[in-house]
Amino acid sequence: MTLRSWRKVGTPMNTSPKLRPGLWDALVVLVVAALAVSCGWTVWDGQDRGTELTAVVSVDGAETERLPLKEAAGTERTIHAGGYTLRLRLTETEIWVESADCPTQDCVHTGHISRGGQSIVCLPARVIIQLEGGERVDTGVDAVIG
């Protein structure tokens, strides 16, 4: 039997394939390259902004707000959670809880945080304010107990 007969089994092949790259192939290359570049733009642009100091506010484990410090500098935010109210203050380099009506006041006592990886936690309101990006704190340890 010949190969001609078994081509009928599958969808038949157009013709013998072109073996030399042509202009149309260049077009495919261009399309893929354009795709790569545009993907790079959309994906990495966001990532780049992520390396700027950003305060991420989460309530009960769910992220509610992202505040890039550069953009939000000089503003005040109010967070209502768990029946409590926290008032946040932001500058270009720092964020802190100015006042809160929670019983423990731990969040207020934590004071100002200014470096990536630092966080303010308010247990009664179940709020975590964490700084992302920027220069990370290097305490030389991976965790602290106590």
Partner: peptide, 8 residues
């Protein structure tokens, strides 16, 4: 597509 070679 007829215009494309194996490369494309």
């Amino acid at each position: 597509l007829r215009g494309l070679s194996v490369y494309g």
